[in-house]
């Protein structure tokens, strides 16, 4: 499991599928997901799980949905106080509705 280097502190709360989660301001949402042990973010058309891979906006395997319905790469957005993100893999979505 991913962890912060020793002595690092978290200072904000973001919501992953409505669940409050500690984060540091300025870190990317993908990093928070990994630290929360969420490696599978979405599934491919044939149902294979995928999660953050490149962390620099190339692989598109960390796409999450924002409150307004917009899809964003979790590695490209910064965690800010109160940010709400939803995982395409979660029950909130039925197959085909998200992508």
């Amino acid at each position: 499991m991913f962890r912060h280097i020793n002595g690092h502190k978290t200072d904000i709360t973001i919501f992953i599928d409505e669940k409050p989660t500690n984060a540091s301001s300025g870190e990317t949402v993908a990093a928070v997901l990994l630290r929360e042990n969420i490696y599978a973010v979405h599934t491919t058309p044939n149902g294979e799980p995928r999660g953050p891979y490149c962390m620099m906006g190339v692989c598109f395997d960390c796409m999450v949905t924002l409150e307004d319905g917009q899809n964003e790469q979790a590695c490209q957005i910064e965690a800010t106080e109160g940010l709400k993100i939803y995982l395409p893999i979660s029950d909130r979505y039925k197959v085909g509705e998200c992508f």
């Binding site: 990994l34 630290r35 962390m55 620099m56 590695c75």
Partner: peptide
């Protein structure tokens, strides 16, 4: 590179 990015921009790593 992804692992290194996690070190740099999030100060995180995996044991």
């Amino acid at each position: 590179g992804g692992a290194q990015t996690l070190l740099k921009s999030n100060n995180s790593g995996a044991d």
